[in-house]
Design a protein around this nucleic acid. Structure first.
Lengths: 245, 245
DNA sequence: CACCATCCGTTACAACTTGTTACGCAGCCC
DNA sequence: GGGCTGCGTAACAAGTTGTAACGGATGGTG
């Protein structure tokens, strides 16, 4: 994974300086900002992996900013604030923050919590379709997690059905890991809605895999992407690149 | 979509009892455990969405368990511990915890942090989603948001289709509030996956409402639950009781 | 290397879902 | 009441998805 890019939002120049410097010394790219406008410029302009957001920002209110960002984006947000009462923390979580850290804080602990949120985000990166317009690239294919559509290498749009979309998401979430039919079925029931619950019986997964292969494999008879693990199940067998869009 | 299943791991029976009970009262399935063996049985036996893991577990060590689980699984883990010094918290994050909560804690705050981790992991909890973790009672009907099924007043199970389920959820989330067709369509596209995106054209909503009426109205010709607001749209017009399950 | 039991790919099929269209009735304004 | 608009609904068609069945591929055994 690329170096994490972190937005540090605080109106106090000293605090901003301290935090960005510390984060930069610890393997991240820290981008200082002080206003919602600056935040949005960064979000529009390039990748942002996490936002450290102060609650009291002079004229602006971090909670409000968080609430608004959440409505549009799924970027991880850690609130940082001198307001440390329980009801204030809970308000932070209520507006969609991923964590809430009270000032003053131990910088090492901040770093640990930043890493925890980043790795949780990365782990569930491909599982969740709610993540904003992430696209996944593999073998020339572009899968858009938002619309659930796929662009062929020749830039032709291929429609996936409800169930096929769910299957692709499950497999995408576990690259290079062989999944049994049961594991796939369970995940399908979580991701896509359980159309008919009787998933236990039979070979529905095999048929589903075949149909997906026909849509995304160049040579469905000799699959390169969706390989069979005999006696086990199926693997998503190629490397996947996740890109912003 | 499904109700979150949370493993509560603590060796103190009172604490375990308190936590599971509280979590169950707040729309989750809480499964008590005290040992690593029990945890693994749960992980093998069924879906687990999050683990609340005490650090000091009598003979066993929560940190070690966390480290081992992390090597094999991606399941979200929140450490809970009376050990609240910074270096102890950092050790928790170091072994892969998603969050670290010091005892004693405010249960509401625990819930907020559980939700934060869950929503980072799965799709963010929408309004509809939050109410989802319950059963709803109206006019003798029981709607189970987990299975998406409905029990008639005569205790007969009625299957709802994917789309009908989504419609009922949208309406349930907005009782007594007239919704326009456009509002319903937008919500349907968020809740249920966009089967075909061309929702803009025509009267699909009307037909869908009619079909749902046929399933849940005692007298579909004279609807009592799903009333028409002429010139506007439709209202869920009866009182709804939400119950834990 | 042949044999055989499995496992898997594939096709055909049927049940179901769901948007579209069309027709007729009901409510509303004058 | 006439006419207009909006809604209920039946019929249809296109698409989806699980099941079953057949045949080929695979891998172990002697």
């Amino acid at each position: 994974m690329a170096i994490p890019r972190i937005l540090v939002v605080d109106d106090d120049p000293d605090m901003r300086q301290m935090m960005t410097q510390f984060l930069r010394q610890n393997g991240t790219i820290a981008l200082p900002s002080a206003t919602e406008t600056e935040v949005r410029n960064h979000l529009d302009g390039g990748r942002v992996d996490l936002i450290l957001l102060d609650v009291m920002l002079g004229d602006e209110n971090g909670l409000e900013i968080c609430r608004r960002l959440r409505q549009e984006q799924d970027v991880p947000i850690i609130m940082v604030s001198a307001l440390s009462a329980d009801h204030q923390r809970m308000e932070g979580y209520a507006v969609g923050a991923d964590d809430y850290i009270a000032k003053p804080f131990n910088p090492e602990l901040l770093l640990a919590r930043v890493r925890a949120v980043l790795s949780r985000t990365r782990r569930s990166a491909s599982l969740v379709h709610r993540r904003n317009t992430k696209t996944f690239q593999f073998c020339g294919w572009t899968y858009d997690a938002k619309s659930g559509e796929v662009l062929s290498p020749a830039q032709v749009q291929v429609a996936l059905s409800h169930r096929e979309t769910a299957l692709l998401q499950v497999l995408l979430a576990n690259p290079h890991i062989p999944l049994t039919r049961e594991e796939i079925a369970t995940n399908l029931d979580v991701t896509g809605q359980a159309q008919s619950i009787g998933e236990a019986s039979g070979r529905a997964i095999d048929v589903l895999v075949g149909r997906l292969r026909n849509k995304i494999e160049r040579t469905p008879k000799d699959p390169q992407i969706l390989k069979t693990e005999r006696g086990v199940g199926y693997v998503f067998a190629v490397d996947v690149a996740v890109s912003d869009s």
